[in-house]
Amino acid sequence: MKNRKKVIFNGVFLAVVFALTIYGVFHGEDLSSMMDAIHRADKRWLVPGIALVAFFIWGESIIIWYMMRSSGIRLKKRTCFLFSSVGFFFSCITPSASGGQPMQIYYMKKEKISIPVSTVILMIVTITYKLVLVVIGVGIALFGRGFLHKYLEGILPVFYLGLALNIFCVTFMTILVFHPLLAKAIMVKGLKLLERLHLVKKKERRLKKLEDSMDTYRDTAAYLKKNPLVIVKVIGITFIQRMALFAVTWFVYQAFGLHGTGFWEILFLQAVIAVSVDMLPLPGGMGISETLFLTIFKPVFGGLLLPGMVLSRGLGYYGELLISALFTVVAQLTIGKEKKQGQKQTGQGMQ
């Protein structure tokens, strides 16, 4: 019943945010002119954009496959691609991408992968995923002063807020991993403070659950110390993976036959949007991502700004959503089935 209510809430929340986004973006706009511009775009440039979205999903699957192997777990790459698709699909449709990893753990469990192992691996994926954003964001803030003033004057507070939230998140997760005793003390005191303020009810099992969760962080720290080269490679793959998705907008730019803005400028403008919205409690950054695009890409797309946003966002978010949704269905139909079939045949053979 609780899970059903959560699904209904997430579905309604997603529908409301989507409706508000559509209204906010297209209200008062000349939609026929926008559609004409999209029809005139050179669709050949959009094919590589779609391929980059698929590569983005595939990139995480390679990270999962690689880390599973380093943990002594042999999986097929196509199975890891399904895990990755499940994660991206549920991240796209839940606030703050909160539903992705729990569903990945659920499907990994169906493949007989222990929850502690899958949790540690997915936590490292999260840390490196956000770490790459932090590195890019800090690099832009420190070394891209001209870039900031040229494109981001109107959204600097949002950019700095997003960067600060990502830095806090990465720092906090790192403390949890490398200083579990300190993290435990902080979290226990925080829980007791919330209880004293009557913001949560006092429950012994909640404290026990919190203490048990710290085992995951200790296991993560042990993995990181044991496999430093693996982590370096994962960070490298994550960087390429992230850049691939940001590059989709450049192909949209080329599809309209536009010139004057370089590849890296467009790439980093898209990175700015990712940094700004990553920690916000909106499914896929819906609403704020479109608004930021229409603000900072105005000098880039000019009169084709709205069609450019529709195609860029359509490929980068909705394309990702559709591809991952398709393979989530495949995951539901196939993951765990081979092992069940094998166990069934083994049981029949013994009879």
Rank of each mutant, 00 (worst) to 15 (best):
M1C: 05
K6I: 11
N10A: 13
V12L: 14
F13V: 02
L20P: 02
T21C: 00
S33A: 15
M34L: 11
D36S: 14
G49T: 10
A51W: 07
W65N: 13
R69G: 14
S84P: 08
F88Y: 15
F90N: 02
S98W: 09
P102A: 13
M103L: 14
M103E: 07
K110F: 06
S114I: 04
L131R: 01
L133Q: 00
G137R: 00
F143E: 06
G144Y: 03
R145C: 03
F147N: 01
K150H: 11
Y151F: 14
G154K: 11
Y160E: 05
G162D: 03
L163E: 01
F168S: 07
F172A: 13
L176I: 02
H179A: 12
V188W: 01
K209D: 14
D212L: 08
D215N: 14
T220S: 10
T220E: 07
Y223E: 04
V232L: 15
T238R: 01
F239R: 00
M243A: 14
H259T: 15
A271P: 06
S276T: 12
V277W: 06
G285S: 05
G285T: 03
I288N: 00
L294M: 13
L294V: 04
V300R: 02
G316E: 06
G316T: 10
L333P: 08
L333E: 09
K339A: 13
K340P: 05
Q341E: 12
G347M: 13
Q351G: 11
